[in-house]
Each structure stands twice: as C-alpha cells, then as structure tokens.
Write a protein that binds this DNA or RNA. Structure first.
Lengths: 203, 203, 203, 203
DNA sequence: CATGAATGAGGTTTCATTCAT
DNA sequence: AATGAATGAAACCTCATTCAT
C-alpha cells in the first residue's frame, strides 16, 4: 500500500472512467483502445499496463458499473420506519433518478447487454450480470417477505416472481427512457407505481 | 431473353434469415458479411445485390423482426368476450412465449438495443424502435381505456404510465430470461401478473 | 453487309461513344463496365458481345479517337494556294479548336497518356499513340519540306525536330487548356504562332 | 521513456520515393498500398502512419515531384552574363535532361495529368499542377520581359502567349520522349530551338 | 442474342496488440 | 514504467467477367 499502489489505482480508475465514456458513445466493438487512452490522457500502450486486453478492460468497466450503480443504490440503508412497499418505491425511484442523472448509464448498459447476447462473451459477462440481477431481486424479495411477516404485504403474493417483475420494470423503463424522446422513467414510475404496489398490499 | 430467373424477394428473405442468425450469434459489429453470405449459401458479393451495406442489412433485419414479432403478436385479433385485463395478460404471455420459442429473438433484440445506444446509429435505429414501442404501448393504452369505459378498469388508473410499465416489464423479463439460467419470462409473468393486474381492477 | 451488320456496327458505335464519355469523366480504371453499359443504354453483359474486355473497349475508344480527331483534322485537304506556313498554322488552329469544342477530348487524351505510361499497357497503347504522333509529325514534315522546295521555308531549318516541336506544342497547350482556368489553346496559338513561324520563313 | 526512436521525416521520404516508383510503374489506381509498403520495406498498415489515404499519399508524391523537379530546375540561378534567350534555352535543356535522367519522371507525370483529368480529383490535383505551370510560365515571362527591356527581344513579341508555348513545348516533348522509341526531347530541343528563339530576337 | 444475377479476387482502411527505446 | 511506431490480420465493399435463362 505504498505510494505507487495509489498511483496505479488512480490510473486504473481514470482509465475505467474514460473507457466507460468511450464505450458508451461508440459501443464496445467500435470504440478503440486509442480513444480510451486519449480520453484518459495516457498513451495507447499504457492501457495495457493496467488491463491485459480490450475485453478485460470492458469487463472491468462492467464490474465497476455494477458495483457502483446497482450496489450503491441498492444497499443504501433505508429508513426502516416506513413501510416496505414505500421502501421499494423509494429504491426504484432512486435508481431511475441516478440513471437519469448519468448520461452514459443507459448506453453503457445497452452495450453490456449486447455483450451478454454475443455467444463468445455470454458466459463471462452474463454471469456477472446475472449476479447483479439476482442481488437486486433478492433485495426486493427480502423486503417483500419482511412485509408479509409484518402483515403489510398480502401473504398470497408470489414473492419472487413479483420481485423479478419489479427488477424487469426498471430495466425496461430505461430502454424507453433512452429511446422515446420526452419519456421519463422516474416520472412514469411515480405515476404508475402506486396502483401497482397497491395490489400487493394486504387488505 | 431474360436473365437468370431469380425470385428477388425469396433471396432477400433468405438473406434476412441468415443475417438474423449471424447477427444474433456474433453481434452486429463482430459478424461479417462473409458469415452472412455463407449462412445464406451465396457469395460475399451477392449480399450486396440485395442490400447496399452492412448497416442497411442490419436495419432490414431490425425492421422485419419488429414487424413480425411485435406486429404479429400484437395485432392478433383477440376474443372480445373476455375482459380487457385478461386480454392484456394473454397478449403478454403470447409475446413472451413467442420469444422463448425463438432462440435468436433475445440476442437479436439485445443487439438492436446496443445499436440504438451507439451515437452513430442512434437516430436511425432508435426511431424505428421507438415506433414499435409506441405501437405496443398504444395497444395497451387502448385496451385499458376500453376497460375504463366498460367499468372493468378503475378510472383512477393513470393509463399511459401503466401501459409503459407493462411494455417495460416484457422487455425487462426477456433480459432476465437470457441472463438467468432457469428463468422463464412467461412463467414469471403468469405467476406475478394476476396480483399486479388485480390492482387495476375497478371496484 | 446485311442488316445485322449494320445493327452490330451501330451498337458498337454507341458503346464507343458512351465509353468515351465515361472514361473521360472517371478515368479508365475507375470507370466501370456497368457505367458504360448504362450510358449506352444496354445491359452490362451486352458490352461483352462487342468487346472482349475492358481493356479492349478502351483500346477501341483510343483507336477511334485517334482516327477521328487527329485523322480528320490532319488529312483534311487544304487549299494549296496558300503558303505552307499558313497551312501549318491553319492545321494547328483547327485541331485546337476541335479539341476546345469537344468537352471530353482532353480528359480522354490524358487518360490515354496515362495508360501509355503504365508498364503493363505501355506496349499496346504506346504503339498506337506513337503511330498517330508520327502521322501528325510526318504531315508537318511534308509541309515544311514542300515549303523548302518552294523557297518559302529557310533551307537551314531542321525540318523534323521543328515538326516534332510543333506537335509537342499542340499537346502541351491542351494540358494547359484543361488545367488553367481561362486559358485558351487556340487563342494562345494564334497570338504566338506568327513570330514563331516567322523564324522558319526563308529570307 | 520515449518510444521507438524514428526519424519521421526520413520514413516519410522513403515512403514517398517508394510510392513514386510504384505509381510510375502501375499507375495511381492500379498500384496498391501493399506494393508501396513492400517497396518501402514496411508493413501495409505503416503507410497509414505517414499518410491518411492513398489519395493523400499520391498528392504528396505529386507535391514533392513538382517542388523538386520544376522547382530545382527552374529557380536555379543562372549566369546573368548570357542573353535571356540563351538562359531560356539553357533552362529548357536542363529540364529535359533531368527528365531524361529520371526513369520515372515521365510516367509519373502522365499519371498526374490523368488524375487532373478525372472529375473527382480534378480540383485538388489540378490546382497544384496549375500553380506549377504558372510558376514556370512566369519565369519565362520574366526572362522575356527582361530581354525586351535590354533590347534583346523584339518588343512586338507577345510575351505571355509565347511563354505558354515554351512551357507547352516541354510537356509535349516529354510525351514523345516516352512514346517514340529513339526520340530525345533534349536533342530535339537543341536542334529546333535555335531557329525558333531566333524569331524572338530583336533586330 | 440479350440480359443481369452471381461470383470471388482484390483493394483500402482499421485497430488490437507488441515491443524497442 | 511509459510511450507510440510498427505490425498484419481482418473487414467492408467493388467490379470485371461469366453464364443460365
């Protein structure tokens, strides 16, 4: 953990940030290592001091994005004095807001998905993505189960399928956010979420 | 006196099919025109008799996919003797089933999204995708409004946001279908849809 | 010399004309057989009924151009009642005028020269071009020698070198005509020729 | 800390030399970048480190040729103790000699002209060629005007047209030099120039 | 004869990666 | 460590020529 360690880590971080921007704009395959190097302010060859290959670099961007984005938003401690359904709503809105505020979040995600779609890279990238999906889903499942234990959520609700749908909802809204001009994922969520979550409420 | 008799439409269709498979497996940028030609059983140069460029070919694949998939599933006439919520459920299940039955539907879709994400191709491909999203959403909106008119759907339901969420749900589930082993979009939908749609019901 | 013969000849002529235009605009190598076919209003494959290859077609264009242009202008009978120096002047002006009136004459000529420059085609095309140069030079030589016999031209004039220079002059002026905006080969010739030819005059 | 030490200028020069040879032998369009690379002893991709495209490379060859050839020969200081007509003769002979000594000068020039002839490249290449023609012509004009001022050249001589003809003469002779076996531009010039220039002499 | 679909060699350009300095 | 010149494998696209109809 000497000073060198810090420098290397800093350079790695700078490269990851630059790579995220470049991959988001041009896509994984179209982006070049030189564009990444330029964006990071280092020489082309130096990228290889931190990452063994373009794929490794993209994978690292993927990893960091998943950790930062989903992780931060997800594991944020939330006030436990509100109901779980409110907490779920809060979480979803937080995530969509964060995505809306980050101009590269969506195109980068679309690129991740595409790499998961390609046979050659499916195993490596898909596994990581699945993990993150599962973490998110588990978080919702936990909340819902707590809600059932507390009598807030209808015990008849099939917890995991509903949690999967909630996760799917977020991803799907982001696609529309990117594609449809004037569409806001968080606003749509705000308007539509109440009646939907209502259905889960015990009564 | 005529040239070699050729069914141009048939050749085009064969190329589109071959291209869809190749693009789905390798991704738009990784796939080569030669792979497409080989898959279609023609020479490299012959692909250019039907399509001016790789991008045009991919766009045509995109168009056909949207027309076939969304189009067919969407505009299928449905029994009007059932309630609109049932019709919505039916539609969603039909789409997820069709996607599950077509091994290239999801990777191809992921590739479409990625091309929409890349700045260079965003305008062209994004516009077409938006159109198809809107068509789907409008269909759901129409059903919900009919439901409200018939007193089946709660008039307080914000129709368009909810419709957007339903569309988002489908897309998001397909991502999970591709990523999570053992995950079934249609099964999840079947289990989770009842309580969710329940919330929209009037009364 | 039946009716077929006429048709074939007519088509060949149409192709030659179309080819001349296309080669002049795009250059020999950049021009495509399809462009030629389109310009002639026939199908691509039909060009091969009249010419065995692109090179043969270009060679035929070359031949015809040499015959028509140099030939016509050159061998035109001229009034023998004027002096030979006047006849030479007349000939040069006629040629430059004809070239100025034909928008493709110069670019086509430049293309011919280039094909003569390329090692692969030098022998075939160079020989034909040399022949035409020689014919032109011989014509000037003959005139000058007649002038010497008639006492109009200084017997000390080295006839062949001067004739070569006169031929060179015409070619060189055409390059400038094409390259320099506002430059007129015939006008320049008119202005400059008198003093130059003057030097050849006996006395 | 520096990269591989490379004399960029030297590499550029080597590429230009190799390209000149290859373009002269095969012509601009027939020559391939690989041939150029091979002739320069570098890899195909390396050519693009120094030139952005084949056209740029050819243009650079063009530029250098014009600078070296016309430039060197043209602006050479000449003894001012001789008459201007002698200086003109000297200049012309120097140029034709230089061209005769350089086996690629003529085919390369023919290729330049052809590129000026093609519509697509006419503007870019034609402008540069026109500039060099004008420089040469201006040089002759200046000499002739000086001759008139000194009383050596007949004041009635139309200076610019005659200068244009002199320039044209040189170009035209080079075509014959290339085309006619046994033809020598410099020898022809030597033999024919005396009577021609004689006509310009005052007296 | 006439056509134009089909071919596939060949050309330009890009770019991940290596490595001498 | 850091650099960026060098490489060469692809990849997209063109087009002269062939040939079934």
């Amino acid at each position: 953990m000497g000073p060198r360690r810090v420098d290397k880590e800093a350079r790695r971080e700078r490269l990851l940030g630059a790579a995220a921007t470049v991959f988001a704009e041009f896509g994984y395959r179209r982006a070049t290592m030189e564009q990444v190097a330029d964006a990071a302010g280092v020489a082309k060859g130096s990228v290889y001091l931190a990452f063994d290959s373009k794929e490794d670099l993209f994978f690292a961007v993927f990893e960091e994005f998943m950790r930062d984005f989903v992780g931060n938003e997800l594991h944020a401690d939330q006030p436990s004095d509100t109901g779980v359904l409110d907490q779920i709503e809060e979480t979803l809105v937080l995530i969509t807001r964060a995505v809306e505020d980050d101009p590269i979040a969506i195109p980068l995600t679309l690129e991740f998905w595409a790499v998961c779609g390609v046979e050659e890279t499916r195993a490596r990238f898909g596994a990581l993505y699945a993990e993150s999906i599962r973490a998110f889903t588990d978080r919702i499942v936990a909340l819902l189960e707590r809600g059932q234990a507390l009598g807030e959520v209808d015990p008849a609700v099939p917890v995991r399928p509903v949690a999967s749908c909630i996760v799917a909802l977020v991803d799907g809204l982001h696609i529309q956010q990117w594609t449809l001009t004037g569409f806001s994922a968080s606003a749509t969520l705000k308007d539509a979420l109440a009646p939907i979550l209502q259905s889960l409420r015990a009564g």
